[in-house]
Amino acid sequence: MRHGKYPLLLAFLLPPLALYGYFVVSPYAQSFLIAMTNWQGLSPAYEFVGFDNFKRMMGDEYVWNALLNNLWLLVLLPLLTIALGLFLATMLNVGGRGGRSTVTGVRGSALYKVIYFAPQMLSVSIVGVLWAEVYNPRSGLLNSALRALGLDGLAKVWLGDPAYAFWAVLAVMVWANVGFYVVLFGAAMQSVPRDIYEAAALDGASRLTTLVRITVPLLWDTIQVAWVYLAILALDGFALIHVMTRGGPNFSTDVVGLRLYTEAFGDYKWGYASAIGVVMFFVTLSVTVLSLRLTRRERIELS
């Protein structure tokens, strides 16, 4: 009877594994090979050039500039998204002070949940097009609103100015992602026993103290997961930036993914583009491992 399980298991496991191997693992493996060549992607001709592509990358100021932007994203995107997500989730779930002894969210929290989560339902390209219009310096929503409020001095060229373009894109990334983490953190907060919050409230703890001293430690596992996801997202960022700025103005919003794309599909340097991809593979891998290691803490048992 026991042996009868294997054919069934294999029947279920092998097709997806084969698909995964063919469509994911195999291209990955091939890109390591291509990274060692000068293949230009339009003919079968190529030569092995060893580590030339990697050496070239060391001296490519545009790749370094893009990597630096990715590193800024790596620091800022998780930090801002998680901070904002935690704050909003707290307000929606335990921030209410209306009732006497029950712990609830602020009034209208059900509506806010829908609003925060809405961007999650839009595809990245739609988000990009939408915000490119919002940031339109002449007729965009943002500048129009600022002018309507009499804040003409704050109206900027946004995506056309290297001083603001990066921050404008970062804001969109946070906006597009925070809704998911509000829901994620909210769900985790539901599993925190109510009496802990009630006790804190009875002891007169402020909302901030409750957040820092109770919510964050109890949600640490979830935050850790969020951190890793957002870090991977920050090292990519390609789709949104490709739609919104294409890395401009003057490379101020360039990211490594966009460099890779331009080298491959713009200049047909597939060997070099693959080398960039290989480096990014290791960078992403190390960042993931590192952030899991660095954020490791004692788990707090709730019961």
Binding site: L13, L14, L17, A18, Y20, G21, Y22, V25, S26, P27, A29, Q30, L33, I34, T37, W39, S43, P44, A45, Y46
Partner: peptide, 24 residues
């Protein structure tokens, strides 16, 4: 473990993205 084995195998089976010099 099967995945690790399947990867390279699939890579060998599929024609490489670099193409085949004799086909042209």
């Amino acid at each position: 473990a099967a995945g690790i084995l399947a990867g390279p195998a699939a890579g060998l089976l599929s024609s490489c993205a670099l193409g085949d010099d004799t086909s042209g």
